[in-house]
């Protein structure tokens, strides 16, 4: 019995110390980063400290934003930190609390869960730190706690791609959608897409609409099954590039030709796919633009200017020329 108690206690201690270890290393690295930035900061005018709290860094979209923020901060000599919660709401809340205590001047947030970070937002508000919500908006009820929402106009992206599909397939036909209903922005993309079909909508039959989980390995078998069930399929619309790649791989595997793949993102992979003809068309998300805008708006805000509560950056269809020019990057 005693042995068991001892073993359990030992485990707990180990666990706690591990967690403490992680936390410690995280804070030290933050501190180190802050320090480094401070020392290199030029003594010209005001020096601000910004923090970026994305939902993850395991994604080129977010890391493109991070790179942009970092570059801008370096140019201006500002302090800049990025904290990665890796899709863990709880960790994001902790990071928000840390940031609030460290007296940052402004914080950019991509919520892990749109409805789940109110507590953190309140903490920041209590310290009078303005929050600029980027990419994925928080729920309406929490909008009061953020200064502005800056995101790609996803509805427009969907609309553009829908219009492109009408252009490519004027005679209509069967189409399939790979969606991701858990995510608000992805729902907007689908709605935009349907609107983009416009007056011609009745020519298109949506023979399947399935959750591709915004991931390649999940979308691949679903797309294969859709192809089997619908031999006359003309096109797939997928809400992001990985999902669209899954559809493309399924088409290749089936040996069919003439099935279009329409996507939204224009990630580096997506551009490559567009260039080699795997994708038929792709509408752009603009993370770099978002980061640039957010950075500027933060400065405006701190200088006392008023800013719009919602800024939707326009999407555009990725052309082959642009894809070639910006290959390997976001826009």
């Amino acid at each position: 019995m005693l042995k068991k108690v001892l073993a359990i206690t030992a485990c707990l201690i180990l666990l706690v110390s591990l967690m403490a270890g992680c936390a410690a290393s995280a804070t030290t690295s933050t501190a180190a980063a802050t320090e480094a930035a401070t020392t290199t900061a030029a003594a010209e005018g005001k020096t601000y400290s910004f923090a970026f709290l994305p939902n993850t860094q395991n994604n080129t979209f977010q890391s493109a934003m991070n790179d942009t923020f970092k570059k801008l901060a370096e140019e201006k000599g500002y302090n800049y930190v990025c904290l990665d919660p890796d899709y863990d709401v709880n960790m994001q809340l902790n990071q928000m609390a840390d940031v609030a205590n460290q007296k940052f001047d402004a914080v950019f947030v991509i919520p892990v869960d749109s409805a789940g970070i109110r507590q953190g937002l309140e903490g920041l508000k209590a310290k009078n730190i303005p929050v600029i919500n980027v990419d994925t908006p928080v729920i309406d009820a929490d909008l009061e706690l953020v200064k502005t929402v800056i995101a790609t106009d996803c509805f427009m992206a969907g609309e553009l791609i829908g219009q492109q599909l009408v252009k490519d397939l004027p005679e209509g036909g069967d189409i399939a959608i790979l969606d991701f209903p858990e995510n608000e922005s992805c729902v907007d993309r689908v709605n935009g897409f349907l609107k983009g079909l416009g007056d011609n909508a009745n020519k298109y039959k949506i023979v399947a609409q399935q959750n591709g989980k915004a991931a390649l390995d999940a979308s691949l078998p679903i797309a294969e099954d859709i192809l089997q069930a619908n031999p006359n399929l003309k096109a797939f619309f997928a809400i992001n590039d990985p999902s669209a790649m899954g559809a493309a791989a399924a088409i290749k595997a089936s040996g069919k030709t003439g099935v279009g793949v329409y996507s939204i993102d224009a990630s580096p992979d997506g551009k490559a796919a567009l260039l080699d003809g795997t994708f038929t068309a792709v509408a752009a998300q603009v993370p770099i633009e978002i980061a640039k805008t957010a950075f500027q708006k933060a400065i405006d805000l701190l200088e006392g200017k008023t800013i719009e509560p919602e800024i939707f950056l326009p999407s555009h269809l990725m052309t082959k020329e642009e894809a070639t020019a910006t290959a390997g990057q976001w826009q």
Binding site: N58, A215, L216, D217, L220, P242, M245, G246, A248, A249, K252, A253, D269, T278
Partner: peptide
């Protein structure tokens, strides 16, 4: 085999 089928190496699969 899966990465070959997906035409890509994806750290998030599995």
């Amino acid at each position: 085999i899966l990465s070959s089928r997906m035409y890509s190496g994806q750290p998030s699969v599995g």
